[in-house]
Design a protein around this nucleic acid. Structure first.
Lengths: 176, 176
DNA sequence: GTCTTTCTACCTATCATATGATAGATAGTC
DNA sequence: GACTATCTATCATATGATAGGTAGAAAGAC
């Protein structure tokens, strides 16, 4: 792994744990064991760096979603939930775009449409698999998973994410 | 409203839109039209300021929850959802503690137990009103609402939060 | 094959600005 | 006289970013 890839890896980790304003080029330089000017060589501005991160993150997510071969709504929910579950169980991290979306008013403008697109990526993938193909139902799953990461981190309870995915599936099968 | 209260108000707005690291004492000073040293007079450190914010925010939330006089699970969900709905429709803001929880790894240690307590405040209030008093079901509602704020901001769609509350209620009444 | 140029990925050094925080002075109130 | 809320002035450090230099690899010319 070359330094450019290392920078991307560390930057992703920083954003997903501390947010966009929670790290500096010098932090990245120290982790990568190069100088901060060399970080700027690979990514002239912080905005450039984060654009690159969101783009590869979105592509990775898209590829994973396309690898789906289940059948039921519950299968689809579990498939999407796996991304969030791994995020928290390995690394204790937020979703990159979920974190950035919460801080959205403090971000460079170019990032904003990319965050909206990422959310639509997940919702639009999920919708055809949902009961009655309800759009709001697909949104609800994504919202629940993004929120589950917040709760899991606040409470130091990584198992919460999987529990929320199951709670959603269960809620569809009990009638109150 | 005195300057101390103004500072608290502006700081809350900053955190709920840009995050803990998304504003400075000078930002607060400019908004309040005093000098940054005077902000430090009221709140010696940023940590002190945010402790005060979380405490009053938690108390406010607790008081609102206790004002509940509904009956059904759906009523309770709507009651809690009102907090989140107002947060996004007025001000376009995150939940203070939801925002901080996402950035938790970049925060002073003293804040962390307070964030966990805030989440439990909502979950523990909600649980007795839920079907079978299921704890995971109460967690799911809170997760959905916290996540709904993220989605609403990412997509610039404030109506999403109320839609998610209704989606949760509907999901309990249809059998797939 | 050797020489020269260009490119890549770093470096040192530096800048302007931002940031959290402190010391000490001052005017008005109790 | 003590207290409150502000001020001016200042600090050390952090931050994003730039200028200009260097060693080694790659590419092209002869």
């Amino acid at each position: 792994m070359n330094n450019k890839e290392k920078i991307l890896g560390f930057a992703e980790e920083y954003i997903r744990t501390k947010g966009y304003h929670g790290f500096s080029f010098r932090d990245l330089a120290m982790r990568t064991e190069i100088k901060s000017a060399s970080v700027h060589y690979h990514f002239p501005t912080k905005e450039d760096l984060v654009v690159a991160l969101i783009d590869t993150y979105s592509k990775r997510t898209s590829l994973f979603l396309e690898s789906y071969n289940g059948e039921t709504e519950a299968d689809a929910v579990r498939h999407l939930a796996k991304i969030f579950d791994l995020s928290i169980t390995e690394g204790g991290q937020m979703c990159l775009c979920g974190m950035l979306a919460s801080e959205i008013d403090g971000l460079p403008e170019v990032l904003k449409p990319k965050l909206a697109a990422f959310m639509d990526l997940m919702i639009d993938w999920l919708q055809p698999h949902m009961a009655n193909q309800q759009h709001s139902r697909a949104e609800a799953v994504v919202a629940t998973l993004e929120g589950a990461l917040i709760l899991a981190r606040a409470k130091g309870d990584p198992a919460l994410v999987k529990r929320m995915a199951n709670a959603f599936i269960d809620a569809a099968n009990i009638s109150t």
